[in-house]
């Protein structure tokens, strides 16, 4: 690892990692860096105004029984107790969500990276055209996407099964049985998400100096070797960002599943977020808030694990194999 300390793990301060400074010198150091604080201050100011109140409200809510227009009744940990021990959906929704995370995250990011590398190919004509096409699902209204996918995947009247029928296969219950429905959701998410992922990877790939590839080529590196020795090490910081945000996004997965299967068939594609919304909209606000914090805990746990295993991905230093 290089000269600069990686910003995480959290416990280590970049200030005086080697010697313990007294308060006065810390303050002096901080005054010296006042522009830095100024530059990052908008986030904290906005969070103080728009974030802390909702957060405290949520914590209080999760420890109370409440509904709009009434006072909160303090119930202690009862909501959490109810959720963990008696909620009929928590376990299943957690399993569904984790299963989706497990196969969607690697395939989605891997696929997007490969596609981005392809679209970054030097002599590819029509790159702008292709990029626009892969970006189309992202700009298309989700409601319409869901309608089209239902038309595609309908068991009896869908295009996919009509085609399969022509070659003597099927019909596959794409939306009405557990495993096919989960596959359908995976396909939908990839299809919807790949455009943005490709876009971000392209943004990262542009930062790589062409000379590095030329040098590697001259050294006789195959394109696969170039990918693993040049491309991948250099985009690891962005990859880390993608892994973490995609994890958070998948654990909070809602709209696409809601629109495509609405948690069905028989509740087997119900996600954590859907359950939370169900609780909230059926006036069980306290439980809903508690559910949210349980989800927050799950995300925290998973992202901490990811950060631990990917701690070398914070910077590019030392990643290049010569």
């Amino acid at each position: 690892m290089a000269a600069k300390a990686p910003p995480l793990p959290v416990s280590r301060s970049s200030v005086g990692a080697h010697r313990r400074p007294d308060a006065r010198s810390v303050l002096r150091e901080m005054w010296k860096h006042r522009t830095d604080y100024l530059f990052i201050s908008p986030f904290y100011i906005l969070f103080a105004v728009f974030g802390i109140y909702p957060l405290l409200f949520g914590i209080q809510l999760s420890l109370s029984r409440w509904q709009p227009g009434r006072d909160m009744t303090w119930v202690g940990l009862q909501n959490y107790q109810t959720l963990i021990f008696t909620d009929p959906e928590l376990g299943r929704a957690l399993l569904n969500t984790l299963a989706m995370l497990l196969w969607i995250l690697p395939t989605g990011l891997g696929g997007a990276l490969i596609l981005a590398v392809m679209l970054n190919a030097r002599r590819l004509a029509g790159r702008g055209f292709f990029r626009t096409i892969f970006f189309l699902p992202f700009v298309t209204s989700q409601v319409i996407v869901a309608i089209v996918f239902q038309q595609l995947l309908d068991k009896n009247y869908g295009w996919v099964n009509l085609l399969l029928g022509k070659i003597g296969l099927g019909p596959v219950p794409w939306l009405t049985e557990t495993i096919p429905a989960q596959i359908s959701i995976t396909l939908l998410l990839h299809w919807m998400g790949i455009g943005t992922n490709v876009l971000i990877f392209l943004g990262a790939l542009q930062s790589i100096d062409r000379e590095l590839y030329e040098a590697a080529e001259i050294d006789g590196a195959t394109s696969t070797q170039q990918f693993f020795n040049v491309t991948f090490p250099l985009i690891r910081p962005v990859m880390l960002f993608m892994v973490i945000t995609a994890t958070i996004g998948l654990i909070n997965l809602y709209a696409p599943v809601k629109l495509l299967t609405n948690g069905g068939p028989e509740g087997t594609t119900l996600t954590l977020f859907m359950r939370m919304i169900d609780l909230m909209t059926s006036v069980r606000y306290g439980e809903g808030a508690g559910f949210g914090f349980i989800m927050g805990g799950i995300v925290l746990l998973i992202t901490l694990l990811q950060m631990k295993f990917l701690s070398g991905w914070w910077t590019v230093e030392g990643n290049l194999k010569q």
Binding site: Q67, T86, R284, Y285
Partner: peptide
């Protein structure tokens, strides 16, 4: 049983 459990919780929260 599912409806029973959910119904009891809903009624509880409406109080």
């Amino acid at each position: 049983d599912y409806v029973r459990s959910e119904n009891a919780k809903l009624l509880e929260s409406l109080k």
